[in-house]
């Protein structure tokens, strides 16, 4: 599941403007997003990198993911988020290099 080296995952979210230009204007943070189980099936990815404006929340990140992967809407009503391996509310403010995981309904046991 984690064969890819950390800094080579696909970056999405910097298409709108020239990223280098953008970075001069406002600081950007890079977030690693992990998809498990049904979320991985829906997105076709195990992980991606997302560039977000500094000060973004997990909710902002989720909004961007729903645009990028509309299929995720299917589990949005039942999933939760984890930030750096701990459950986190959508209001949490993200930091550079944070790891955000989409946690579809778990089914261990």
């Amino acid at each position: 599941m984690t064969e890819e080296p950390k800094d080579t995952c696909d970056v999405i979210g910097s298409q709108k403007t020239n990223p280098s230009q953008d970075k001069d204007l406002a600081p950007y943070i890079k977030i690693k997003v992990l998809f498990f189980a049904r979320a991985r099936d829906l997105t076709g990815s195990t992980e991606i990198c997302l560039e977000m404006p500094d000060g973004s929340t997990a909710r902002d990140c989720m909004s961007k993911l729903l645009i990028e992967f509309p299929n995720l809407q299917e589990i949005y009503n039942s999933m939760v988020l984890a930030l750096n391996e701990e459950y986190a509310p959508e209001s949490t403010i993200l930091k550079d290099k944070d790891e955000l995981a989409i946690i579809p309904p778990i089914s261990g046991g």
Binding site: R38, I103, P104, P105, I106, S107, G108
Partner: peptide, 21 residues
């Protein structure tokens, strides 16, 4: 069952489904 992020997929003869606790 409630909080440890582990997932189970049940595979049937004619399909499969991710279970939800």
């Amino acid at each position: 069952k409630a909080s440890v992020p582990i997932w189970k997929k049940e595979v049937y003869e004619n399909g499969e489904v991710w279970k939800e606790n």
